Amino acid sequence: MTSHTTSGTCGPALRVGLVGYGLAGSVFHAPLIAATPGLALDTVVTRDEERRAGARAAYPGVRFADAPDELWARADELDLVVIASPNRTHVPLARVALEAGLPVVVDKPVAGTAAGARELAALADARGLLLSVFQNRRWDGDFLTLRALVADGALGEVQRFESRFERWRPRLKGGWRESGDPRKIGGLLYDLGSHLVDQALTLFGPVARVYAESDVRRPGAAVDDDTFLALTHVSGVRSHLYVSSTTAQLGPRFRVLGSGAGYVKHGLDPQEAALREGALPVPGEPWGEEPEELWGRLGAGESPVTGGGTPVRTLPGDYPAYYAAIGDALRGRGDNPVTALQAAEALDVLEAARRSAREGVTVTLRPAGAGSPVPSPARVPEEQPV
C-alpha cells in the first residue's frame, strides 16, 4: 500500500493564504494544502459568494479576503502565499507578495516571459524568500514511472521522447484561457505545453533547438488549440510534444524509444480526476493508483497494441509530495521542489516555440553540445472572478 510523501513536522502549522478559488485554487491547491501535515489553509481570496460557500463547506474555519491587498496588510499572520489566479496576474501579485516579505508559490506559468520569471527569481533571492512554481505534473504516476525507467537504464540510450496532452473538445468553453488577448497568456502552448516542456527538460536537460507548428482550428477560437513542438536537447535526445483540444483519436500519453527498448503508455494520471470529484489524499492511505489495464509496456520489436512487451506497473501519482516539499523547504529541511529559474528555462522554450510557429523557422537557443549535462533522474517515490 503506497501513499503520498509526508514529512514530520514540529511546531505550529504554517499558515497559507490562497489567492484565487477557481479551477486551480479549488481543485488543486486548496485540497493539497489542507492534506499536507504542517500546512494550514488560513485565508482564501475570492469575492465570489458561491466560491466562498464551497470553500467554507470544505474547510471549516477558513477566513476570506476580498482582494490580495488584504493579505499584504497582515503579512505577519501568514507563512506562505499561493497565487492561483489568472495567468496575467501572476507576476504582479508575486512581486507584491515578495516585497511584503512572504514566500510564494505560483501556479504555472509563473510568467508570460522568461525575463519575467527571472526578474521574480532575482527579487526572491534578494529578499531571501522561497519562490516556487506549481508544476504538479512532475508527480504524475506515469512520469514518475518513466523517470525511474530512464534512471535504471531500462531503455538504453534514449533517442526520442514523444509526449501528449490531447483532448477532444470541438466546442469552445469560453473564459480567459481561450481569450485572444495576449495579456491574458491564454492558449494551450502556455497551459498544457508548460507541463510537457517542463517534463522534457526534467528528463533530458537543456534544449538547443526548437521547431513548432501552432494552429487555431475550432470555429470562433482566438488562441492556439492544436500545437506541436520538436525539441532537440543538448544531449541529442529529440522530444516531440503534442498539445491539442481537437484530437478525435487520442495518441499514447508517452512513447519513448531507446537503443535497447521502448516504453508506450496510454491514459492519464488519475489524480486530477479524483480531485475534481472531491476525493482528498489522506496520509497513509493509497492515492494516485492506476488500474493494471492502463499500465505501460516495455519492450523491443513488439506492438503494445497486441499485448507485446512487458507490463510495467505505474508508480502511484504523488501530487501531495509537492506541498510536503514546500513545507520542508520553508522549515529549512529541504530544497525548493520547482524553482523559478527552472520555470524560466521552460519559458525560453515556449517563447521560441511561439516564434518558430509564427515565422516558420527553427529557433536556436544554444549551440549543440553546450549547456548543462543531462540530469540523472532519480527514482522518486472562463474569465472568472478571483
Rank of each mutant, 00 (worst) to 15 (best):
V16G: 03
E382K: 12
G360W: 10
C10N: 14
G260I: 01
V91M: 00
R177I: 05
V62A: 02
G186R: 09
D142P: 13
Q199S: 13
A154S: 12
Y322K: 12
G371W: 04
A148L: 09
E70I: 04
A346R: 05
V44F: 10
L102S: 13
E383M: 08
S85C: 10
E50W: 11
R74M: 09
G153E: 15
P283M: 05
L189A: 01
V133Y: 08
D318E: 11
D69G: 15
P206K: 11
V234Q: 05
G193P: 05
R331N: 10
E383T: 14
G174V: 14
S132V: 00
G288E: 09
D76C: 11
T247E: 15
A357S: 14
R183Q: 09
P68A: 05
T89A: 10
R313E: 02
R74P: 08
T89C: 14
L298W: 00
R331A: 04
L120Q: 09
V96I: 08
E345F: 02
E272H: 12
L231Y: 01
K173M: 14
A343G: 12
G153M: 08
W176L: 02
L241S: 00
R52H: 14
P109E: 07
L32H: 02
R355M: 11
R255I: 05
T202R: 15
G334N: 00
E292Q: 15
E277D: 14
H90K: 06
V81H: 01
A100E: 09
V82D: 00
H90P: 03
D69P: 05
V264D: 10
A35G: 04
A321W: 00
A344W: 08
A261V: 01
S26Y: 03
F228T: 11
R171C: 06
V62M: 01
G307H: 06
L350P: 04
T2P: 12
L39I: 09
A13N: 13
L315D: 03
H29F: 06
G128F: 04
P206T: 07
T36W: 00
L294C: 02
T246P: 04
G278D: 09
R379I: 07
H29D: 08
D318M: 01
E77S: 11
R333P: 00
D66E: 15
G317S: 15
P281F: 09
V150M: 11
Q342P: 01
K108R: 12
G180I: 02
G175E: 02
R147W: 01
W72N: 01
L250K: 15
D224L: 06
L39D: 06
